[in-house]
Amino acid sequence: MSFFKRLRESISSKAEAVTNKFKEGLAKTRSAFIDRMDDLFRRRKKIDEEFYEELEEIMIGADVGVNTVMELIDGLRAEVKKRRIEDPQELQPILSERLIELLRGDEKVGLRYADSGLTVILFVGVNGVGKTTTIGKLAHQMKSEGKKVLLAAGDTFRAGAIEQLEMWGQRVGVDVIKQSAGSDPAAVMYDAIQAAKSRGVDVLLCDTAGRLQNKVNLMEELHKIYRVIRREIPDAPHEALLVLDATMGQNALQQAKLFGDKTGLTGLVLTKLDGTAKGGIVVAIRQELDLPVKFVGLGEKMDDLQPFDSEQFVNALFTKWASAEAEKA
């Protein structure tokens, strides 16, 4: 049985709806990345330096990452020499399997919850990446699962940030703990934790001000928030998630590296994946950072924030190749 046929058969009917979301959300990346590679493999009649250069250009253009691309190309060269491959189309399954290996990492890495009592999840990142929207969508998911959720409006700096989180709270049907604009964010977190404890809340989702990683005062403020949370709940925050905008490509990867050095991150949320042709950034992030991608944003709807699953991601990305190869088998 071929690799692609096994891949298709491994996807249960229960997962079809999620798979379709990934397929729709990755349409732009598939068009710019896989379709271009498909054209290359069909158009080129031999494997030469021009073939490798064009393949390299396509992958770098999808933001797979230069280091990762070089590793992939070197691997393909070795396989071509070892197997004496002459037809470029024979490289399709080899390349896709290599990409899958890079993506796999920790399979279906879910959120870490407290063993008992309150779970605290902190969200960080620069302005405009979709932190507040991500919090709102995650609150909706958790509430639909029967969890009691509370939101903390820790972004007291940006104009309208508190109101935006309140709008999400009203939309989802969860309360928001806040203070006035300009208040100390650490004080907001303290109030939110006390409220969550007294109300028997399961999960506290904490918004923070968008900050550039090179702004010392804002990073110190973030450390203060950490200290207050840990003082009240020693093993919290149970997750510290960096929210990144997928449309930023390699800039998002650089942000992740810089934030990770300073803030004790436990995972990433990659938003706006549906709005970019550079979904290869997921491959680069998984390869270059020792951090799991916990969620990906695949659209504007409430349920378009999906837990990252490498199998679903790969199936959606390589759907054309999988279909073609399975039919051959």
Rank of each mutant, 00 (worst) to 15 (best):
Y113L: 15
G105P: 04
Y113N: 01
V126E: 00
G130S: 11
K131F: 01
Q89P: 01
D106S: 12
V129M: 07
R112S: 14
P93L: 09
V109G: 03
R104C: 01
G110F: 08
P93H: 12
E101A: 14
Q92D: 00
V109T: 14
E90A: 09
P93T: 10
S116L: 10
G125N: 04
R98K: 15
L111H: 07
D106E: 15
R104K: 14
P93G: 10
L111S: 07
K131I: 03
R112V: 15
L111R: 07
P93R: 12
L95D: 07
T119V: 09
G128K: 00
D106G: 10
S116F: 13
L122F: 06
P93Q: 09
A114W: 04
S96G: 02
Y113E: 14
V109M: 08
T119A: 04
L118Q: 12
R112H: 12
K108A: 14
L95K: 08
G110I: 02
L111Q: 06
E107M: 09
L122T: 06
G105A: 05
Q89S: 11
K131D: 05
V129G: 06
E107Q: 12
L99T: 03
Q89G: 00
E101C: 00
A114E: 08
D115W: 05
G130D: 07
L122Q: 09
L103N: 01
Q89H: 06
L99W: 10
E90H: 05
V120N: 04
S96P: 00
R98W: 03
Q92N: 09
R112T: 15
E107D: 13
L91W: 03
L122I: 08
L103R: 03
I121L: 11
K131N: 07
L95M: 11
L103Y: 05
I94V: 15
E101W: 05
S96D: 12
T119R: 04
V129E: 06
P93D: 06
E101T: 12
L111P: 03
L118W: 08
E107C: 09
L118C: 12
E97Q: 15
L103D: 01
D115T: 13
G130E: 03
G105D: 02
G117D: 08
L95A: 03
E90N: 08
L111I: 12
D115Q: 14
F123G: 00
D106H: 11
D115I: 06
P93W: 14
G128F: 09
V120T: 10
Q92H: 01
L111F: 10
E90P: 00
